[in-house]
């Protein structure tokens, strides 16, 4: 059944009328010039609003947004990597941390041994000033030899790590990626400040950890 509307209902219907009420107002307007004019004027605003709609395509706009999104994604990844490196020690499992700490001690011994070998004329120089500026050259040489050895080891394990057959190998692979990024970071810092013994110790500790990990990969391969 058709409902009725009067002039008094008009504003309320304009604000929140149901379709039935709008139909009733239209019907009322057929015989009420005032409401007819009001209705027309009210609708004309909506019609005018269409003039403010311009949906023409801009072919260069999406590529521009896409580029910005891609750049932001790269920045996001870099930030995440930096964070993961900064939180490297706390985030690695306790067993790794223990291994790193142990390696730290071991590396001191190894370094001392190497320097002893490469520096036979000064066997008595086994004091704790190994990493002072006078010994820096020797440490760097020892480090280079050590790195070469590790690289050879890494070469041997590469096939297993690139296509890890087991979750264990995949874990090793991930761990090595983290260690390599730590090495790169420490090397950069050590490059800026070559005589910083603390940095050297840390670097050697991470190398040692890498060596052990690579050895574990080789072990896992045999099993």
């Amino acid at each position: 059944m058709m409902m009725n509307a009067t002039c008094k209902d008009r504003e309320r219907i304009f604000e929140d009328g149901t379709p039935g009420e709008w139909a009733a107002l239209e019907a009322h307007s057929a015989n009420c010039p005032v409401c007819a004019e009001e209705l027309k004027a009210w609708k004309s605003l909506s019609v005018a609003a269409q003039e403010m709609r311009d949906y023409t395509d801009s072919p260069s706009f999406w590529p521009r947004i896409e580029r910005a999104l891609a750049e932001e994604a790269v920045r996001k990844t870099q930030r995440a990597e930096r964070r993961s490196w900064l939180s490297f020690l706390p985030s690695v499992p306790l067993s790794w941390q223990t291994a790193v700490a142990g390696a730290f001690v071991l590396v001191l011994t190894i370094s001392a041994g190497w320097i002893y070998v490469h520096w036979p004329n000064r066997p008595e120089q086994h004091d704790k000033s190994l990493l002072k500026s006078a010994a820096l050259e020797n440490v760097e040489h020892a480090e280079a030899v050590y790195v070469q050895a590790i690289d050879r080891l890494a070469e041997e394990t590469r096939p297993q790590l690139e296509n890890p057959a087991t979750p264990l190998l995949a874990n090793y692979h991930e761990k090595l990626v983290v260690l390599d990024s730590a090495i790169a970071d420490l090397r950069a810092q050590a490059g800026l400040n070559p005589s910083n013994a603390q940095l050297r110790h840390q670097l050697l500790a991470v190398y040692q950890e890498k060596q052990q990990t690579l050895e574990e990969v080789l072990e896992a391969r045999k099993q």
Binding site: T18, E37, E38, K40, K43, S44, S46, V47, A48, Q50
Partner: peptide, 25 residues
Amino acid sequence: TMGLALPWKARIASVPRQRETRVEP
């Protein structure tokens, strides 16, 4: 004389109905 005296008033009538169906309810 009661309606909108917009410069465009005369042209409004030519606007499609389709918009009106969406406009209010």
